[in-house]
């Protein structure tokens, strides 16, 4: 497995060395297994040597799917640290994200169903997204650019049986979120999302420190490693305002920001926005159509039920709901957080 992995990446690296003139990307492999990212049984998702698992403190909501994340950074190269945005990854980097539903969220030992694995490959100085959909037999995942809707069922954290659709986006729709000025970009691996502990085969360690010690992160001061991340559903980690803004940043801000695909709306929900109007306070909708839900403003301070933001979060109609991609059910806990935030505004 390891040798196959090395062959794959030596091919990528060779082509890079021959010149950045590699204009056309490599066609995606047909099967996920062909990349050699994992050792042992594929569905166990045990990373091969050179592949690091990682986690984010506040992930994007995806229909309650759980996510496994891995990164491959080519031998001898490292990501460049910065404290405000996604790290600068070298060419040849692959970000690997597998979405799954546990059979029972209360008891992981009951097994899980893998839905899809998305690859973001940094090649020819750009990122390319390749989606793989897992077979029903869970033996492998197949490259499928066209997306799909699949029914899922599971028992949730409260012991309730759930059944709903799970939405697998098509390859174009990756860019619905991973988009800055129409360039495909990764969204997750940044200091604020990763400065916390992770369980490695070698034991528990701060992720940034682990990367730094394994020569996979440059420019990071080991003394800055701590558990500082704000977690949206953990009041111990931040104020209501901080947690609500973080939730909006992660779930909406990739589109709703000046360089994102929802810039045309004039509503900016990324963390760095400070103008109350841009955040939606007493802002009238522009092209919301029936997404306005007969409400006049995006956010009406003190009145969550009169706020378009809540109306769209509470909808699962594809013509109304926000985010408009990547979910088919409501994020009840996220809705509760944003309602509380708006209710507390004056």
């Amino acid at each position: 497995m390891k040798s196959r992995l090395l062959i794959f990446f030596s091919v990528i690296l060779t082509s890079l060395c021959v010149g950045a003139a590699v204009d056309r990307p490599h066609p995606p492999k047909e099967l996920l297994s062909q990349y050699g990212f994992f050792k042992g049984v594929l569905k166990d998702q045990q990373p091969a040597d050179g592949i690091m698992p990682y986690s984010l403190s506040t992930p994007l909501f995806s229909d309650y799917a759980e996510k496994l994340r891995f990164v491959f950074i080519p031998v001898g190269l490292s990501a460049k640290f910065n404290d405000s945005s996604v790290f600068n990854f070298p060419e040849g980097t692959v970000l690997i994200k597998t979405f799954y539903f546990p059979v029972d969220f209360r008891n992981p030992s009951k097994g899980r169903r893998l839905m899809e694995t998305r690859l973001l490959i940094h090649e020819g100085s750009r990122w390319i997204a390749y989606p793989y959909i897992w077979n029903e037999d869970q033996k492998d995942a197949v490259y499928d650019p066209a997306g799909e809707v699949k029914a899922v069922k599971y028992v949730d954290l409260n012991g309730k049986k759930k059944e709903h659709n799970y939405f697998i986006p098509n390859q174009n729709q990756c860019k619905g979120c991973h988009n800055q000025n129409e360039v495909l970009v990764p969204l997750g691996p940044s200091a604020r999302q990763m400065n916390h502990d992770m369980m490695y085969s070698s034991g528990k360690q701060n992720q940034l420190l682990y990367w730094e010690q394994n020569d996979k992160l440059s420019g990071f001061k080991p003394s800055d490693a701590k558990n500082v991340g704000i977690v949206w559903n953990d009041p111990a980690t931040g104020t209501l305002d901080q947690r609500a803004r973080l939730w909006l940043d992660i779930n909406c801000g990739f589109c709703h920001q000046p360089q994102g695909p929802a810039a045309s709306s004039g509503l900016h929900l990324h963390m760095q926005e400070s103008d109350p109007l841009r955040i939606g306070i007493n802002k009238t909708p522009v092209a919301a159509g029936r997404g306005s839900g007969d409400r006049r403003f995006d956010i009406v301070p003190g009145k969550p039920v009169e706020s378009i933001l809540i109306f769209r979060m509470e909808s699962d109609d594809p013509g109304i709901m926000m985010p408009e991609l990547g979910r088919s059910v409501k994020h009840q806990e996220g809705i509760a957080l944003i309602k509380e935030w708006i209710a507390g505004m004056k």
Binding site: P27, E30, I133, N135, Y143, D144, P145, A146, N170
Partner: peptide, 23 residues
């Protein structure tokens, strides 16, 4: 033909059209 090795998880009309729009 460029993608002869590619299999599709569940071909139907939308998938064919969408795949065409991507490729």
């Amino acid at each position: 033909s460029l993608f002869t090795t590619v299999l599709f998880a569940q071909p139907d009309i939308r998938k064919q059209w969408q795949t065409r729009l991507i490729t």
